[in-house]
Computed example of a mutant assay.
Amino acid sequence: MTVAEYQTEAVESLSTEIPGIDIAAVTAWLADNVADSEPPFAFDLIAAGGSNLTFRLSDAGGRQWALRRPPVGSALATAHDMGREWRIMAALGEAGDVPVPEMVAFCDDHSVNGADFYVMGFVDGLILRDRESAAHMNPEQAEVATQSLLDVQIAFHTLDLDEVGLGDLGRRDDYVGRQLKRWRRQVEAASVREVPLLVELHERLSAAKPAETAPPALAHGDYRFDNTVLDDQWKIAAVLDWELCTTGNPIADFAWSLQYWADPGDEMTFLTDPPTLLDCFARRDEVADRYAAQSGFDLSDLGYYAVFSWWKQACIVEGAYARRLKGMTGGMATTGDVGEIARRVDNMLAHAADMATGVL
């Protein structure tokens, strides 16, 4: 079947739409731009929400890739700059120090799919999203995964940005100051409710900013187990989701990752069911000590960065609340109680305020 014939058949036979994919137009583009691909293609959504949409792309010959595009109805253009994400991963892939998928093809012609998108190699493996996904791991396997997670983060925190071609990615100074302005601005632009504690903590965080002690680095922005793929040896095979990546303070970037490392007994956690709650994993303080020892960075201001991380997460979730109120689901079905999102924001801010005692 020719591409043109498939386009016609796809349009005539499609019974359900795929949000974010113009099947006929994308099929024609893939056939022309992805070597050795064979229509028809299947598009299976594997990551959605406020983040970029990721589809598992399969062709008639059984080959697989991943296709990434911005969320449907996205409002934060800087977080969904597909060309920027492509550039970062392509540079890292060429440098070889940080494992990323192979970058295959990029489309900036919005007549094809309404937004930029790209295709990359599909990296098969284990993604630790929750306790169930890690339930079969023993302490030795968890240790390998933990050490690999640290090794890779330290690798991109100590890259020579100029040498890998990312020296002009963004400003290198005042990372936390830039983040404080950016996320408060996003909340205020949404303008769905008053959140006085968010404003109060912003002012206190701004006034108490510590001096940056580590050299500017590549900051992933959301590095954690479920944004990586583990291979069959329990090591990181690929780091995914570079959409929030910028240049900045590696200690603040590590502190953000550390908040995902939940310990048993934690009152609040970034994730609803963190895999690190399992007994096979090291505890958060040990992970911090190991990062400090391996990187050589001074973590004496980690308490400040922990408060900042919870404040920032509250801002991000507040943005999700605003989008849900406006009916924007980012490719997911509308489920759950919208009010619960707002309550989670309030609880995060209260948690950050408690952590700020004696720190700010």
Rank of each mutant, 00 (worst) to 15 (best):
V3Y: 07
E5C: 08
E12Y: 03
T16E: 14
T16A: 14
A24E: 15
V26F: 03
D32K: 14
V34P: 06
S37I: 10
F41Y: 15
A42S: 15
D44W: 00
L45R: 15
L45S: 15
G49I: 11
S51G: 13
F55P: 02
A60K: 13
G61M: 03
W65E: 07
V72E: 11
V72R: 04
A75N: 10
L76W: 09
T78D: 15
R87W: 10
I88F: 08
A91F: 06
G96C: 05
D97W: 01
P99Q: 09
V100G: 11
P101Q: 08
P101T: 12
H110C: 00
V112G: 11
N113M: 11
N113D: 08
G114Q: 10
A115N: 09
D116P: 13
Y118A: 09
M120I: 07
G121D: 07
I127N: 07
A134Q: 04
H136M: 12
M137H: 02
E140T: 10
Q141S: 02
E143P: 00
A145P: 13
Q147G: 00
D151E: 12
V152C: 01
V152H: 03
T158E: 03
R172H: 10
R178I: 04
Q179F: 02
A189V: 00
V192R: 12
E194V: 09
V199G: 02
L201W: 04
R204L: 13
A208Q: 05
A214H: 01
P215W: 00
A217H: 02
L218R: 06
L218N: 05
D222I: 05
F225A: 14
D226M: 04
L230A: 09
L230V: 03
Q233C: 12
W234R: 08
K235F: 00
C245V: 13
D253Q: 08
W256C: 00
Y260T: 02
Y260K: 01
D263Y: 09
G265L: 07
D266V: 06
M268T: 11
T269P: 03
T269Q: 13
L277A: 01
L278W: 13
D279I: 01
F281P: 02
A282S: 09
A288Q: 13
R290K: 12
F297V: 02
S300K: 07
L302Y: 09
Y305T: 03
V307R: 06
S309D: 04
W310Y: 14
C315G: 12
C315I: 10
V317R: 07
A322N: 05
T329W: 08
A333G: 11
T335Y: 11
G339C: 08
G339K: 11
E340Y: 12
R344L: 14
V345W: 12
D346K: 05
D346G: 04
A350P: 00
A353N: 14
A356P: 02
T357Q: 15
V359I: 15
